[in-house]
Amino acid sequence: MIEVIAPGPYATVQDLGRPGYAHLGVPRSGAADEPSLRLANRLIGNPEGAAGIELTFGGARLRFTTGTWVAVTGAACPLELLRPRGTAPDDAAPGEPVPQGMCAPFWVPAGGELRTGTPETGLRTYIAVRGGLDTPVTMGSRSADSLSGLGPPPLRTGTVLPIGPTSGLPPIIVDAAPSPGLGAGVLLVLPGPREDWFVPGALTTLCAEPYEVGQDSNRVGVRMRGARLKRALDEELPSEGMVAGAVQVPPSGQPIVFLADHPPTGGYPVIAVLTPASLARAAQLRPGDRVRFRRG
């Protein structure tokens, strides 16, 4: 089991979410930076969709009651492991913090405590444990959905997270994976589906000057501040299905990039959609970051 001593600013349990229910009004949810969760799971021999912890701005302290293999991916944080007395190797005194690396499996002994610092760049850090988190399943997923409230609430001090069985999992065969990095501040977009609802050149405007990431961004969407995107059609768009990565433009003209917990339908036109790789990158943008859109 894992006992949450401190969750950091915002931490949730995430797997790959609830695909297949959008027509019932259910957001997909799941890890905002999905490739990072998948990588963390692969590193320790888990199925890629096992549930892990998604941290926002790091800052977590977790105590492990059982010895566990762990991998941490996504936004790079300083990692420290505090071993309980009697289990320290020769190079560290009992109880002294030992640094650990990102994107590499490491062993946390029973009674050990993992501390994550604050990432210098990027926003979301993923902690996977061998066996996966064995928290309750709602509609096929353990994910916490911030929009609909499905799944468990965010982690709090004292939250206990059971770990699933490890029998039958393949052995751990990777020492470390090269960190995929967060990429330059560029998001690739494919035009449409509603670019014709905007004035000619709106897509060029989107891709011209950088936008700044707003403070009110969250798992639903990244709110961009920058050049206004003007509409050519003023009529109301009938509600239609929305995809993750959609660049939706409300009447303010300031685009919102939809992330994992986006509403499954919406009534504002979508000028363009991020490529899947850029969607993961968008999930790592933090308030104040500057980012450029480019046609993919």
Partner: peptide, 12 residues
Amino acid sequence: EIVPGPATVLVT
């Protein structure tokens, strides 16, 4: 995903 709307169907 198959998401019907008043004038569209989104297929993912």
